[in-house]
Simulated scan of single mutants.
Amino acid sequence: MKFAVRSVLLTVVVSAGLVACTSNDASPDPLPPATSAPTVPAAVEKASLSGAKVTDSFGNVDFYTTVDGDTLAEVADTFELSAAKLAQFNGLLAGATLEPGTKLRLIPAPGPAIGAKGPATEDAAGIPTSYQVVDDDTLAGITYRFGITENQLAEANKVPYVHEQGNTYFIRSGHLIQLQKNPVDSRSGTGATVNNSFGQPIFYTTVDGDSFDSLGYKFRSTTEQLLMYNPSLSAGTPIPAGTKVRLIPGELPIDGARGTFTADADGIPLSYTTAAGDTERQVSFRFSLVDIRSANRPLTGTGGTWYEITDPPTGELVPGQTISLALNQPINR
């Protein structure tokens, strides 16, 4: 997917489990939180078979080449498939005898499937690499057709998850989605992380081998988002080891969170003064807060928060209020 800060775009960002839509001023506008349902898992090897295996970028086995003595039932059981499904994927009769050297598909045969009828690409080994969503597609159909889980699909696309109310972000006609991760350096991802009081990562210090891809897969943030949050970084240029990378908007005002904030010496946000049009959801998104209300509960009474809201359905806040962004430094009134 290609994005530009000054053009209309959609991005999903990892921040307290929230989804945000970025408009032409690079300011996110939220979508509902995820309620992912389990999907059909990709083929996972349960027992040892000695034949050659072809795996995808997540380690799912998509193809298996039989050796002498292998049976349809044994292969199916090993990779947690029914014998009928395995036979169907490979155009075999139920109970067929397997000849040594037979390359078996462990995912559905190429082509449209229920809930996933769009066109797909694959690499030279037959591993699905990308897919274009069409009308009436479902997450269950896509994950089943390509033998991956929803979490793996989310990681491949550098988003926290792929399901939200109505499937309006991920399942939209014409959307080209990735089915695999790009290779990353084995040294990547071992740098120091600074978390806020909610346990969410807000800064990461890079090490040799880190890249926009490795950071994106680890922290579920697209290259475009990382560039927005870190103006000193450049696309196509390696990230030097020792670079402190911001993983949240933070100093970048966004729609619904345009107020000012304070932070401690480590850059961890502590308090925030609301501006006109601010909402609970967008303030939480900007600072990666799991539950902003938990840091702003009244000392007495049964109310959820002490701060004032002008529009409860949208969570719009009264401007000029200073609220806590830190569990360990709550503001209780």
Rank of each mutant, 00 (worst) to 15 (best):
A73L: 12
E74T: 14
E74C: 05
E74L: 06
V75S: 05
A76G: 09
A76M: 11
A76K: 13
D77W: 06
T78E: 07
T78D: 05
T78F: 03
F79H: 10
F79N: 11
F79C: 13
F79R: 14
E80D: 12
E80A: 10
L81V: 14
L81F: 09
L81I: 15
S82I: 13
S82V: 15
A83K: 10
A83H: 14
A83L: 08
A84I: 09
K85T: 05
K85M: 01
L86I: 11
L86S: 07
L86V: 12
A87P: 15
A87W: 12
F89E: 12
F89G: 11
N90F: 02
N90V: 11
N90H: 10
N90Q: 10
G91N: 07
G91Q: 06
L92F: 13
L93D: 10
A94M: 08
G95I: 07
A96Q: 06
A96D: 10
A96L: 02
T97S: 02
L98M: 08
L98T: 13
L98P: 15
E99S: 09
E99T: 15
P100N: 09
P100E: 06
P100M: 04
G101N: 05
G101Q: 13
T102C: 00
K103C: 01
K103T: 14
K103W: 01
L104I: 11
L104R: 03
L104Y: 01
L104N: 04
R105H: 04
R105G: 04
R105E: 07
L106G: 09
L106Q: 08
L106I: 14
I107R: 06
I107P: 08
I107D: 01
I107L: 00
I107Q: 03
P108K: 07
A109Q: 01
A109G: 05
P110N: 01
G111V: 07
G111T: 15
G111I: 08
G111Y: 04
P112G: 04
P112W: 05
I114E: 08
I114G: 09
G115F: 03
A116T: 02
K117H: 06
G118H: 01
G118S: 01
P119H: 08
A120F: 00
T121S: 03
T121D: 03
T121G: 01
T121A: 00
T121Q: 05
E122V: 13
E122M: 09
D123H: 08
D123F: 04
A124K: 12
A124Y: 10
A124M: 10
A125H: 10
A125D: 11
G126D: 03
I127M: 00
I127S: 01
I127T: 14
P128Y: 00
P128K: 06
P128T: 07
P128L: 00
P128A: 00
T129C: 02
T129R: 02
T129Q: 08
S130G: 00
S130A: 01
Y131G: 04
Y131I: 11
Q132M: 09
Q132W: 00
Q132F: 04
V133T: 13
V133I: 12
V133N: 11
V134C: 10
D135E: 15
D136L: 13
T138H: 05
T138Q: 04
T138Y: 05
L139Q: 12
L139D: 14
L139S: 10
L139C: 15
L139H: 12
A140Y: 09
A140H: 08
G141L: 04
I142A: 03
